[in-house]
Simulated scan of single mutants.
Amino acid sequence: MTAKVAVLDYGSGNLRSAVRAVERAGAEVELTSDFDTCLAADGLLVPGVGAFAACMEGLRAIKGDRLIGRRLAGGRPILGICVGMQILFGRGVEHGVETDGCDEWPGVVERLQAPVVPHMGWNTVEVPEGSTLFAGIEEERFYFVHSYGVRDWELVTNNRTRAPLVTWAEHGGDRFVAAVENGPLTATQFHPEKSGDAGAALFRNWVASL
Rank of each mutant, 00 (worst) to 15 (best):
K4S: 15
K4R: 15
L8R: 02
L15E: 02
L15H: 07
S17C: 08
V19N: 03
R20F: 01
R20N: 01
A21Q: 04
A25D: 03
A27P: 08
V29I: 14
V29M: 10
S33A: 10
S33E: 02
D34F: 10
L39F: 11
A40S: 13
A41P: 03
D42T: 13
D42G: 09
G48L: 07
V49M: 10
V49W: 11
G50Y: 11
A54H: 02
C55S: 07
M56L: 11
E57S: 05
E57V: 02
G58Q: 00
A61E: 05
D65N: 15
R66Q: 14
I68D: 01
G69N: 12
R70Q: 09
G74I: 09
P77M: 05
M85S: 07
Q86I: 03
Q86C: 03
Q86R: 05
G90W: 06
G90K: 06
V97E: 00
V97D: 00
T99N: 09
T99E: 07
D100L: 15
G101N: 14
E104M: 15
E104L: 15
W105H: 12
P106D: 08
G107Q: 01
V109K: 01
L112D: 02
H119Q: 01
N123D: 01
N123M: 04
T124M: 13
V125N: 02
E129Y: 12
S131K: 09
L133G: 08
L133Q: 11
L133R: 11
F134T: 03
A135Y: 12
A135L: 13
G136P: 05
I137E: 00
E140K: 14
E140T: 10
E140L: 10
E140D: 13
F142C: 15
F142G: 07
F142L: 15
F142V: 14
Y143L: 12
F144Q: 01
V145F: 08
V145T: 05
S147A: 11
Y148W: 06
V150D: 02
R151Y: 15
R151A: 14
W153K: 14
L155Q: 12
L155E: 13
V156Y: 12
N159G: 06
R162F: 02
R162W: 02
A163H: 03
V166M: 09
T167N: 14
T167G: 13
W168M: 14
E170C: 09
G172F: 09
G173Q: 01
R175L: 01
A178T: 13
A179L: 15
P184S: 10
L185K: 03
T186N: 07
A187I: 10
T188D: 08
K194G: 08
A198F: 15
A200D: 09
F203S: 02
F203W: 09
R204G: 11
N205K: 12
N205H: 10
V207E: 04
A208V: 07
A208E: 04
S209W: 06
L210I: 13
L210C: 11
